[in-house]
Each structure stands twice: as C-alpha cells, then as structure tokens.
Simulated assay, not measured.
Amino acid sequence: MELAQFLVLKQQYKPNKTEVLFIADGMPVNERYFYLKNSNIYRAVKTAYSQVFGEFKTDDEFLEFFKEMGCYFDSLTNEPIKHMPPAEQRKARQQGVESLAHRIAEMQPRLIIISLKVIEKFAREAINLSGVDMVEHIAVTPFPVKSMVNVNNCINGVVAALRTVEWDV
C-alpha cells in the first residue's frame, strides 16, 4: 500500500468533531496500520474501548463507533520513519511538530493520548504550539509491542484516559 493510500484511508475515518486524538509516531512502513484493523495499536485500542464501552461484534463496528465518538488516530509525521536511523527519526519528529500543531488547532480535542513515550516531548510541543486550551487530559502510553507488559500498560493507559472524560453514550 502506498503512503498516499494510507493518508486517504486515514481521512475516511476522520470525525466531524474530534473529541479524542491519538498521536502515534509516523505512518506505517509495512501493511500494518490502525485503520487497516491489523496492527498491535489497533488491537490494544479496541480492547481498551471494549472495556470502557462494551464489546464490539466486528472490527468495522468498532471503527464506526470510534469515529462516531469523535476519536481519531493521527501521527506526528505523515511519513514512515521507523526504518530511519535514530538521529533522522528525531529530526523527522521535530519537523512534524508544526504540522501536527496546526491539525490539533483545527481539531480542538478534549483528550489526547500519545501512543509512544519517545514522542511525548514532540507531541507536547505541538499541543503547546497549537494554542488549544480545551484539552481536559493528556495521557501517554507505551506502544503495545515487544512485551505483554507494554501491551497491557497501553490498554490500561487508554482505559484510564477514556475514563477521565464524560461521554454521552
């Protein structure tokens, strides 16, 4: 799948009003992606939402609910960076701050969940630069890879963050 196809797919799931913004690192370098319903972060977020809102019969039902609730999954950079050396990753993340700040300013989310601790500094810089003052809570979770501890900490972090917001469900 080409990067442009990932960006089109992401836009299809963008809600009219963003209540919850998930910020990940960069776009995928392979065929694993949140909106393709086949990535670790997708499974962890779906599990967390199931714990808070109840079970979903299908992946499509979950993604529809996710969008209807005003939830959106974005990334710090609109390019794949996982394959880059660490110094280039940091540079790409820094270059993504201003663009992310503009998107945050447009979306005006109430809750922001940063889905990778290493990007927290950059994401917070973008949040501050956005000038958005209606964010009720910012949470940072580990990315759900490498160990079940990370997976469970991600799920528990998303659950805790979701419970900080009043929902009209």
Rank of each mutant, 00 (worst) to 15 (best):
Lys10Thr: 15
Leu76Val: 08
Cys154Gly: 06
Asn40Ser: 15
Met84Gln: 12
Ala160Thr: 11
Leu21Ala: 04
Thr47Val: 08
Phe34Val: 07
Arg110Trp: 00
Thr18Leu: 01
Gly131Cys: 02
Glu19Ser: 10
Tyr33Ser: 11
Met107Thr: 02
Lys117Arg: 15
Met69Trp: 00
Glu68Met: 11
Asp25Gln: 15
Ile81Trp: 00
Gly70Glu: 02
Asn16Thr: 12
Thr58Lys: 10
Asn128Thr: 13
Pro15Ala: 07
Asn152Arg: 10
Lys17Phe: 07
Arg163Gln: 15
Gly54Trp: 03
Phe66Tyr: 14
Asn150Ala: 10
Leu116Ser: 11
Lys37Ser: 13
Phe53His: 04
Ser75Arg: 03
Pro144Ala: 04
Val145Trp: 05
Arg103Cys: 03
Ile112Pro: 01
Ala4Val: 12
Val52Arg: 00
Met69Ala: 13
Asn38Asp: 11
Glu79Pro: 03
Leu129Gly: 01
Glu166Asp: 12
Ser50Asn: 02
Lys14Arg: 15
Phe34Met: 08
Pro15Met: 05
Leu116Ala: 14
Gly96Gln: 04
Glu79Ser: 13
Leu21Pro: 00
Ile155His: 01
Ala92Trp: 07
Arg103Glu: 12
Asp168Met: 09
Phe34Asn: 06
Thr47Asn: 10
Ala161Gly: 10
Pro85Ala: 12
Ala123Thr: 06
Val20Cys: 02
Pro144Asn: 05
Phe65Ala: 10
Ile127Tyr: 01
Val149Gly: 02
Val140Asn: 05
Lys67Met: 11
Gly157Leu: 05
Glu55Ser: 12
Lys121Tyr: 08
Leu116Thr: 08
Ile113Asn: 02
Met107Gln: 08
Leu76Arg: 02
Asp133Leu: 07
Gly131Ser: 04
Met1Asn: 11
Ile41Pro: 03
Ile114Glu: 04
Gln108Tyr: 00
Arg32Ser: 14
Asn30Val: 09
Phe62Thr: 07
Arg32Gln: 13
Phe65Gly: 06
Asp74Pro: 02
Leu162Trp: 00
Tyr72Trp: 13
Glu136Tyr: 00
Gly157Trp: 02
Glu64Arg: 15
Thr47Ala: 11
Arg163Ala: 01
Leu7Asn: 05
Phe122Asn: 13
Ile23Met: 03
Ala48Cys: 05
Phe22Thr: 03
Leu3Val: 15
Ala161Cys: 09
Pro28Lys: 08
His137Ser: 03
Tyr13Pro: 05
Ile127Thr: 07
Met84Arg: 13
Val132His: 00
Phe6Tyr: 14
Gln51Cys: 08
Glu2Lys: 15
Ala161Pro: 08
Arg43Asn: 07
His83Thr: 12
Val145Leu: 09
Arg32Tyr: 14
Glu136Gln: 11
Val159Pro: 02
Phe143Gly: 01
Arg124Tyr: 05
Val158Gln: 01
Leu7Ser: 06
Ala4Met: 09
Tyr72Asn: 08
Gly26Trp: 07
Ala160Asn: 11
Val8Met: 12
Pro142Ser: 09
Arg32Thr: 13
Phe122His: 14
Ile138Arg: 00
Asn150Ser: 09
Ile112Trp: 00
Lys121Cys: 06
Arg163Cys: 06
Asp168Phe: 09
Phe122Asp: 15
Pro86Ile: 09
Ser147Pro: 04
Phe53Trp: 05
Met148Leu: 14
Lys146Cys: 10
Leu36Asn: 11
Asn156Leu: 09
Met148Cys: 06
Gln89Thr: 09
Tyr13Ala: 09
Asn30Tyr: 04
Val151Phe: 12
Ile112Thr: 10
Arg124Phe: 04
Ala92Pro: 08
